[in-house]
Design a protein around this nucleic acid. Structure first.
Lengths: 346, 346
DNA sequence: CTGAAAGCGCTTACAG
DNA sequence: CTGAAAGCGCTTACAG
């Protein structure tokens, strides 16, 4: 039996309070509290002293007590309405990391739209629950009525991939147009001259931007418009199947397809295989999102990846900074994307 | 710093306290507290009175205060290690519903196995965080070392679809063998006489049971063993592709396939389409789980559905009952399954 | 079965 | 910049 282990357990079990830290560090309780709340008005030297003592003793603030005394919730809620659970769980992971670093709770809530707006669902939530900060992801991040309600209440908030960036918000995003352009250029660079674009929902700003990038690339490479087809999808796998069938009627000689997300790319590829087309030999397909689909399909799918986890992490961190500072500093964070080359367009 | 990672019920907005309710109801504070903690020793009449007043005034207990005073966490943690985010999010939804009804926090934590066990990851978690109850899902629910540690600490826990049911636990499950048998019989009833089974990971008890059900059906219908093929997969889409290719070499005349989950069914179908086989005309495929895949593939996939959301809801409810009662009553809950008939085997 | 009092571990005015 | 005191809304012994 290891002696140290016993000692450690006792130490860990002991209910250390802010008072213990204060005593050991030789400062007041208030000072310790200030340190743990990142308040100004503590000399750096004292701050380091307190933090050092806390670390040595293994102290962690009691969240319930903080909530009770401060009447703050230490909750950051992510409001979403997206069937893509992979996307949501990446956001959640990013939030959770940032929250757990700072003593906050990460919460996820699916909102249901009524009459095209999430406002009612949001209000119902805010009536019942207290939140210190809010994160919105598409399509909720484009709901003006929701944003108005949040701003009205002065709740710090962050928008992930918003259609319109907001001045009084934290905005995290990729350059969707540029990303659409670059993956289209990738397709063109692979020798494709007859191309198709499969759109997502036109109500999603991201889809429109990706399409704009597609057309930019077409222009930049002077590809004749008659060699290009636009098919409308809705982000679902099924709409990818349908798009392929339409394509075969309208323009069977197309060799390169850019689908605005991976699910549609999967649908397109399945339909193509079913029709006897070889992928990528006869038809190359690229997607967007680098979802698990893209990795697990066969052929695996070349896709444009955005750092969702990191975007969520940064937005949460900045949100917490905002909550503490009670004012917003920098508000726009653009993230780099990457083309993940796989078998569907090698 | 933060313990809680998940969705939970935050304190109510209105500042009603237990004292307000006590005053309005004309009882003591203590009595109100008892009512909200489902303690015995309160007459039913008083209980109803208090509950009525609380409802009328819109009172909800302040969780932070409860935590602080009781030194309980009001946290229920779900430990998992499953790449299927759809499955996890269904569990989470069920937990969340039950938790929010009862003033608990629902938390989800992915555990990483070291040397084949989740024990180390669990211990690390328990050292840092307080939990009042635990839910384990496969494959964590089959980790004996994990279960031992939880029992050693007398933490109430529930097992979702465990390989071995535990006496001192809440067990929620479907009859995997029977489910495997019934969907195989469905396949046979559709006229298929040459069949294949694609297994999941053999380390998952569920996969073994589903297979046992498959063979039961084969026996029951006296299908000659030479007309039956077993292919081993690992639950991934890719292993479904591979299984189909193997199948074409070993037994190209098979007409009905039972894949132990939907992802492998998708893989099989994609490979079949690619090989020019028509689904379901030349080859029928059934899956298991009724995942979003099954609904969105084309052809859509006939699949066996289990009520995951409800299983999680019930296990959470029963867990909370156990926590309150400080003793375990009924411990086994079997759920009915359903075959969802779709295009891949109509 | 029920009440009055102490206390959980923090933060927040209020002083200095 | 820092300290002493009150209080957040509950639960928990302790009485009765």
């Amino acid at each position: 039996m290891n002696i140290l282990r016993g000692v450690f357990e006792v130490t860990a079990r002991k209910n250390l309070t802010i008072a213990d830290i204060a005593q050991h560090a030789g400062v007041s309780i208030k000072t310790v509290s200030r340190v743990f709340n990142n308040s100004p008005n503590v000399r750096q030297q004292k701050r380091d002293l307190v933090l050092g003592v806390a670390r040595d003793l293994g102290y962690r603030p009691n969240i319930s007590a903080r909530q009770l005394a401060s009447k703050r919730s230490f909750v950051i809620s992510h409001f979403h309405d997206n069937p893509n659970t992979d996307y949501l769980s990446e956001i959640y992971d990013g939030m959770r990391r940032a929250c757990s670093e700072q003593g906050y709770y990460a919460v996820a809530e699916k909102l249901e739209a009524k009459k095209g707006s999430y406002r009612a669902a949001l209000l119902e939530y805010l009536l019942r629950y207290e939140v210190d900060g809010v994160i919105l992801s598409p399509p909720v991040s484009d709901d003006e009525a929701v944003i108005r309600e949040i701003e009205k209440r002065d709740i710090p908030y962050a928008l992930i991939s918003p259609g319109k960036k907001k001045k009084k918000a934290i905005n995290v995003f990729i350059d969707e147009k540029n990303a659409g352009r670059s993956i289209t250029e990738f397709l063109i660079a692979r020798g494709h001259e007859k191309l198709a674009f499969i759109s997502g929902l036109d109500s999603h700003a991201a889809s429109r931007e990706r399409e704009a990038g597609f057309w930019e690339a077409i222009d930049a490479f002077s590809i004749p418009k008659k060699n290009v087809v636009r098919l409308s999808g809705n982000f679902s796998m099924r709409s990818g199947f349908a798009a392929f069938d339409k394509l075969m009627k309208k323009a069977p000689n197309v060799t390169g397809i850019f689908a605005a997300n991976d699910e549609m790319a999967v649908g397109t590829i399945v339909a193509a295989l079913r029709a006897g087309k070889k992928v990528p030999e006869e038809l190359s397909v690229v997607g967007f999102d680098d979802s698990p689909f893209a990795r697990s399909m066969w052929p695996t799918i070349t896709s444009l990846a955005q750092p969702v986890d990191n975007m969520a992490h940064v937005s949460t961190q900045k949100l917490i900074d905002w909550i503490h500072a009670e004012s917003l500093e920098e508000s726009r964070f653009e993230f780099a994307t990457q083309i993940i080359v796989r078998d569907s367009c090698p």
